[in-house]
Amino acid sequence: MAVTQLDIELQGQVNRLVRSLRINGDTVALAADRSYRARISVPSSAASVTLVATLADGSAQVRRLLLGHSAIPAAPL
């Protein structure tokens, strides 16, 4: 058996100061209850996910996930 594709899906919420949320550059839709759901493809043996929340005053909150796995061979750089 070989894992040919691996994704992770994050589900969560942002607070009321957040005007928009981007994950790895893509804008994520925010529901009325300020929840979000985003699927991220894990492209190689190591990947990172950057969440950028833009607040009402234009400033940003940046959070990061690092992913590493042994399921899929590393893609060439």
Partner: peptide, 25 residues
């Protein structure tokens, strides 16, 4: 006002895997 929670929270993580053959994973 409701208390101000974290700017971003994660409540669940779902792992989605596709394999090259049918198997119990």
């Amino acid at each position: 006002e409701e208390p101000l929670g974290p700017a971003i929270s994660v409540q669940s993580v779902t792992i989605l895997a596709t394999t090259d053959s049918a198997t119990a994973l």
